[in-house]
């Protein structure tokens, strides 16, 4: 279980507070205007931004002193998720051995993970030789190998078209189900969130609000969400 205990993040001219929990295995979307702090919150969970006050806990354990690589989390950034000079197999191997020492057993696991995301036989390619969608799949395969209980997605598929993005999110859902991971997805696209997230966090006006059931949130959007969506409030 992920707990944000009176968490406050501060950066230049920017302030965000959060105080809520997410149970294991839940898929949570984060939505809000750009600059509201969605990505900063994710970076704090991954260990790249230190809280100004408050704590981030995983199963009751404070993560403040845990290095990013040792956190129970895998993060996928907007881009640059693969090292361009390493092969896909080597990039995946980093999920098993940060020293990149590949054993026979690891090679088998990597092959299986590649097959799982539909990239069989592409292990020896460099990322540049893959399409954007395939690169996303490779990054997901590494997340599968790392099998950390918290999967953080910072709009990793933003550069893909809507159909491909939906396909990738479906794959994320499958991977998360297999590893029983809690997922936090940042997106600026309400359709992505609605299609993927069980619950949704609205990030606005300096606060990341507690997760609300996604369907309910979009059925009765609060003023800040209505302003973000910019539609005549879709009260169905």
């Amino acid at each position: 279980m992920l707990t944000l205990d009176r968490l406050v993040l501060t950066q230049e001219g920017f302030h965000l507070s959060a105080d809520w929990t997410v149970p294991l295995g839940q898929k949570v979307g984060l939505i809000g205007a750009s600059g509201a702090g969605k990505s900063t919150l994710l970076l704090a969970l991954a260990g790249f931004v230190a809280p100004t006050s408050g704590r981030i806990l995983w199963d009751g354990k404070d993560l403040a002193q845990v290095a990013p690589g040792n956190r129970p989390a895998t993060i996928l950034f907007q881009d640059q998720n693969l090292f361009p000079h390493l092969t896909i197999a080597q990039n995946l191997c980093l999920g098993l051995s940060p020293r990149l020492q590949m054993t026979q057993e690891m090679a088998l696991k990597i092959d299986r993970a590649l097959a799982r995301v539909g990239l069989s036989g592409l292990g020896l390619r460099k990322p540049g030789q893959l399409s954007g969608g395939q690169q996303g799949r490779a990054a997901l395969a590494r997340a599968l190998l790392r099998a950390r209980p918290l999967l953080l997605l910072d709009e990793p598929f933003a550069a893909l078209g809507p159909a491909l993005r939906a396909e990738m999110l479906a794959l994320v859902a499958e991977v998360a189900a297999e590893t029983q991971a809690t997922v936090m997805l940042v997106s600026h696209d309400p359709q992505d969130i609605q299609g993927f997230a069980d619950r949704t966090v609205l990030v606005a006006q300096g606060a990341a609000n507690a997760p609300v059931e996604t369907a309910a949130l979009f059925a009765h959007p609060p003023a800040a969400l209505r302003a973000y969506l910019g539609e005549k409030s879709p009260k169905k």
């Binding site: 690589g69 993060i75 090292f83 940060p98």
Partner: peptide, 24 residues
């Protein structure tokens, strides 16, 4: 480009120098 990725994967020390820094 790759600092946070390397950190999140726990790449450090000699391995990071050899597989990330020097090639890049």
């Amino acid at each position: 480009n790759y600092g946070q990725l390397a950190q999140s994967l726990g790449l450090s020390g000699a391995a990071r120098l050899r597989y990330v820094t020097v090639p890049l």
